[in-house]
């Protein structure tokens, strides 16, 4: 991880920075609460937290427009919150309740929103990559200028189907932004131990796909890269790859003992490169928000998350006849 960057002066407005800050903080507080509820046994199964990676999805969502689609892996809570899905519905899905986005039948890894064009939530590593490419195929077929944001991790980047998708996306010039969220560990296997080349953004070169490496701890850098990618896709130039370097603070899932990295390594990223601290510093230095205003934001978010957690625990379990619904249309 590169050394800590000074807070930059940019053309970004204070208002926009505050929006980024709110969304990133919402994700962090939501994930912290999810971790807590998991520890209490309220959330079952697998639960993969996004803490540390917030700048990636928030930066990219800032480059999206109405009608764009997005999908990702099983580490998906943040993507839903960032595209505007209701924290209550997400949290209630984590607890397996009828108020969840999948009425309790999908769980943490399998959530969808037709309304927000969030296409999952995929539990099979890299399966979302051809599917996201297919969403882009539909955009082209229908003659829209919408794009598909297809997120996957550094682990998924070694799956064969990613390259099958790259080939078709480039061959047919499909409007898909491939976002490789490189959090540097595929479960417990570091990038160095799994990848013959650490430069994941170059993985599309053999397919003539334009790409760039992005600092995923800097929301503005992500947003700017996202805007370049999206403009490329909307103009009909085919896919674009963003190799976004980020870091996950928590374990792969809740049951991860994290023996594969040192506590010092994690601590160093937290203190030197935290994506939310970075935005807060910009806000303070640019005098876009007072300490009181930031505190108020924090309070508001805590309230929303707390309400989501209450809803997720009071929403009833799905009725038993739900067992046999939604198998076929």
């Amino acid at each position: 991880m590169a050394a800590k960057k000074p807070a930059q002066k940019t053309n970004t407005s204070g208002e926009e920075l505050i929006e980024h800050y709110k969304k990133m903080l919402m994700i962090r507080r939501f994930e912290e609460k999810a971790g807590q509820l998991y520890g209490m046994g309220v959330i079952g199964g697998f639960c993969h937290l996004y803490i540390g990676q917030e700048a990636v999805v928030v930066g990219l969502e800032a480059s999206a427009k109405e009608g764009d689609s997005r999908l990702t892996s099983y580490r998906d809570h943040a993507h839903m919150l960032a595209c505007g899905m209701d924290p209550k519905g997400v949290m209630a899905e984590l607890t397996g309740r009828s108020g969840g986005y999948s009425r309790g039948k999908g769980g943490s890894m399998h959530m969808f929103s037709a309304e927000k064009r969030f296409y999952g939530g995929h539990g099979i590593v890299a399966a979302q990559v051809p599917i996201g490419t297919g969403l882009a195929f539909a955009e082209k077929y229908n003659g829209t200028d919408n794009v598909s944001f297809t997120y996957f991790g550094d682990g998924a980047a070694n799956q064969g189907q990613v390259y099958e998708a790259f080939n078709m996306a480039s061959l047919w010039k499909l409007p898909v932004v491939f976002v490789i969220e490189n959090n540097q560990y595929a479960m417990g296997t570091s990038l160095q131990r799994a990848s013959s080349s650490p430069e994941l953004h170059t993985r599309g070169h053999a397919f003539m796909i334009e790409s760039e490496a992005v600092d995923g701890m800097d929301v503005l850098a992500v947003k700017e890269a996202g805007e370049r990618a999206v403009a490329h896709c909307r103009a009909g130039n085919g896919p674009y790859i963003l190799g976004v370097k980020t870091y996950r603070y928590r374990g792969h899932s809740m049951s991860d003992p994290a023996k594969y990295r040192t506590r010092e390594e994690v601590q160093k990223v937290k203190t030197e490169r935290d994506p939310i601290d970075h935005v807060r510093e910009m806000l303070e230095q640019g005098k876009h928000a007072t300490t009181e205003e930031l505190k108020a934001i924090d309070k508001d978010i805590k309230k929303v998350v707390s309400e989501a957690a209450d809803f997720a625990q009071t929403s009833p379990e799905p009725s038993l006849d739900e067992l046999y619904t939604d198998i076929l249309r």
């Binding site: 490419t133 882009a136 539909a138 598909s148 080939n167």
Partner: peptide, 19 residues
């Protein structure tokens, strides 16, 4: 292309996308 895994996933995505 000869890419069953890939084009099947792509077609599933196209179906999700309304085709």
């Amino acid at each position: 292309p000869i890419t069953e895994h890939g084009f099947t996933g792509l077609a599933v995505g196209a179906a999700f996308g309304g085709l």
